[in-house]
Amino acid sequence: MNGLRLVFALAGIMAAVPASAQSNPAEPAAPVPATPDPAFDTQRDSFTVGAGVAVLPDYEGSDDYRFIPAVQGRGQVSGISFFTRGASLYVDLIPQAQGETVDFALGPLVAANLSRTNRRVIDDPAIRALPQLDTAIEVGGFAGISKTGVVTSAYDVLSARVAYQRDVAGSHDSYVITPSIDYLTPLSTRNLVGISASMQFVGDGWAQQYFGITPGASTASGLAPYDLDGGLKSYSLSILGAQSLEGDIRSGFALFGAVSYTRLLGDFADSPIVTVDGSPNQWVGAIGIGYTF
């Protein structure tokens, strides 16, 4: 689910946004410098792992919510970075040059779509009566560009990215395209906040798999048959935040939290899965702790 990917991106962001390289955990949090600190090494190897709990809809379009545990990570080795977003893994194969404020990203991704693959977590009886779906394994790539030092300091980051992925497991045999914009800024050496916006376009097979209802599924569930084509499915907005527990957001333990809102659109919002037994307004929240080393 797109909203879940956005929320748990924060678990890896804490190592990716530079704060002051001269902070002292024994001293009060210092303001972020207005100019870059030459001691900061953008190519240093690092790894962040975050673990927490999230609340999210039972399936995309549901108005029933459940809690799940989640673990996410981000790292950089020899200039090659990788990060997870929900059940997706991205690998950026273009290293950022030392001292450069513009960074290009390009690389592969692999994702798993688990929506409605487990009837036991679905509370609504009509949706539970629909056929259980197979897990979609989606493979593709992404490209993007980011600029460091945009508005608030030398260390805030504005990024734009577009990702394309296609099912290779024969589940929905279609594609997903996700353009997104992210803005992150450290407030001091100990904390940061961010906002994110994205849209999601899907193919015909994806649309029918997750929001359509075949005649057989209609008989089993009592919901009216429904056919739809692919297109713009939704937009999402997220707010993120992190607070270091050790004085420097780039290392050690930190708390993180995030809230994401997704709005289903058009034929997707008009599906009986949404209008009869769900909601076009989808919320995801998460809180947890991360460690960077």
Rank of each mutant, 00 (worst) to 15 (best):
41 D>M: 04
42 T>C: 04
43 Q>G: 12
44 R>Q: 11
45 D>K: 04
47 F>D: 01
47 F>Q: 08
47 F>E: 07
48 T>M: 06
49 V>K: 08
52 G>H: 02
54 A>P: 00
55 V>S: 14
57 P>K: 08
58 D>I: 10
60 E>M: 14
61 G>Q: 08
64 D>R: 09
66 R>T: 12
67 F>D: 09
67 F>S: 15
69 P>Y: 14
70 A>Y: 11
74 R>G: 15
75 G>H: 06
76 Q>C: 06
76 Q>V: 08
77 V>F: 14
79 G>A: 10
79 G>K: 06
81 S>A: 15
82 F>H: 05
82 F>M: 12
82 F>T: 07
83 F>W: 14
83 F>E: 10
84 T>I: 07
85 R>N: 03
86 G>R: 08
86 G>P: 03
87 A>C: 06
89 L>C: 05
89 L>A: 13
89 L>I: 15
89 L>S: 06
93 L>Y: 11
95 P>D: 10
95 P>F: 04
95 P>V: 11
95 P>A: 08
96 Q>S: 10
96 Q>E: 12
98 Q>E: 10
98 Q>L: 06
99 G>S: 09
100 E>Q: 15
103 D>R: 13
103 D>T: 14
104 F>Q: 03
105 A>C: 02
105 A>D: 09
105 A>T: 11
106 L>I: 15
107 G>M: 01
107 G>Y: 03
108 P>A: 10
110 V>F: 04
111 A>F: 02
113 N>H: 09
114 L>S: 05
115 S>M: 09
115 S>P: 00
117 T>K: 00
118 N>C: 03
118 N>I: 08
120 R>S: 15
121 V>A: 03
121 V>Q: 10
123 D>N: 11
123 D>R: 11
125 P>E: 09
126 A>F: 02
126 A>C: 01
127 I>S: 07
127 I>Y: 04
127 I>C: 02
128 R>S: 05
129 A>Q: 14
129 A>P: 06
130 L>D: 01
131 P>C: 08
135 T>Q: 08
135 T>N: 03
137 I>V: 15
137 I>Q: 07
138 E>K: 05
138 E>W: 07
138 E>V: 07
138 E>G: 01
140 G>D: 01
143 A>M: 12
149 G>K: 00
149 G>Y: 00
152 T>W: 08
153 S>F: 05
154 A>E: 03
155 Y>G: 00
158 L>P: 00
158 L>F: 11
159 S>T: 05
160 A>D: 03
160 A>K: 04
160 A>Y: 13
167 D>L: 08
168 V>K: 04
169 A>M: 02
169 A>E: 00
169 A>D: 00
170 G>I: 13
172 H>F: 11
172 H>D: 14
174 S>I: 12
176 V>S: 10
177 I>C: 09
179 P>K: 13
179 P>E: 12
181 I>A: 15
183 Y>M: 04
